[in-house]
């Protein structure tokens, strides 16, 4: 289980990195390496070139105005402990308790999670809840992609081979609201079989606003807008919500594989979704 040979570059500036991306035909970007390295070791991917972006310090910064700007190279361990994140995005830290193990969080990055785009990855689910804006750069400029348009297909983000994800911009919800994040995996740190995240704003027992993201159940993590639509503006009554979610749940195209059936994912998601909504409401 040794990687096939490749040429390794470690640019120290964004400009250099983008230049390399433009010139190298068959290159993979190496950030935290917690998904790419196993694939290299198993020879599932055999790129000619590896571009290690770990030397580009500007990609590893967190800044805050009315929005949070999180550099793509920010490590999961940093996000898990950063006070700014704790203050403005507590759900991200809660979601991170489900992400791998502390040894993988030492190197794993938010940009890596978003670009690898595992169907069950938690950080994309958080980005989805806030309609995050993703900034990608290439030698020809910068473009911005709304999170809901990021996932094109199974493990395929909307980024071309000469582009690099540089930052994730999140606008936290204002005013009183609650958050919930529920996931089920067989063991601590495993990829979720299903997961649900929820932001909720309740006023006078009416759901004023709600955002739900789901992971592990379809080819890509996504916003569960069909469900948000039926829950928005109704009275907060958990027994009613249990019934309301049934129809949207039936519209999901559940993953069905040799390890877990779609039927189970559906039952599981229903339970988790209810728990996430309850948890969010409890915190609102």
């Amino acid at each position: 289980m040794k990687a096939s040979a490749f040429t390794y570059y470690k640019p120290n500036s964004l400009e250099d990195a983008l230049g390399l991306l433009q010139n190298e035909e068959d290159a993979k970007v190496l950030a935290g390496g917690q998904s790419l390295m196993p694939m290299l070791n198993m020879r599932f991917v055999q790129p000619e070139t590896i571009i290690d972006v770990n030397g580009i310090d500007e990609l590893a910064r967190i800044s805050v105005t009315d929005k949070l700007e999180i550099g793509a190279l920010t490590r999961q361990k940093t996000l898990a402990k950063d006070p700014t994140i704790r203050q403005h995005l507590p759900i991200m830290q809660e979601a991170l308790t489900w992400v791998g193990h502390f040894q993988t969080q030492s190197r794993g990055t938010i940009g890596g999670s978003l670009c690898h785009l595992d169907p069950a990855a938690e950080l994309p689910m958080v980005a989805l809840l806030y309609d995050a804006e993703l900034q990608v750069a290439s030698a020809s400029g910068i473009r911005s992609i709304p999170m809901q348009e990021w996932a094109l297909a199974y493990m395929m983000p909307s980024i071309s081979h000469d582009e690099l994800l540089t930052k994730i911009i999140i606008k936290p919800w204002q005013g009183s609201h609650g958050y919930g994040f529920q996931e089920f995996a067989r063991r601590h740190g495993d990829f979720a079989i299903a997961a649900a995240g929820c932001l909720i704003k309740i006023d006078n027992n009416i759901i004023e606003d709600i955002a739900i993201s789901i992971g592990g159940v379809e080819d890509v993590p996504r916003r569960f807008t069909e469900c948000e639509d039926v829950l928005r503006a109704i009275k907060y009554d958990i027994d009613d919500i249990k019934m309301q979610v049934l129809k949207p749940l039936s519209k999901i195209n559940y993953l069905d594989d040799s390890l877990v059936t779609g039927a189970y994912r559906r039952r599981l998601l229903r339970g988790l979704l209810i728990r996430a909504v309850e948890q969010a409401a409890g915190r609102s």
Partner: peptide, 15 residues
Amino acid sequence: MTTNYGDYLLPLASE
């Protein structure tokens, strides 16, 4: 179908 330790689950300390 289960030839890695993500798919083949060995018992961990946490459970």
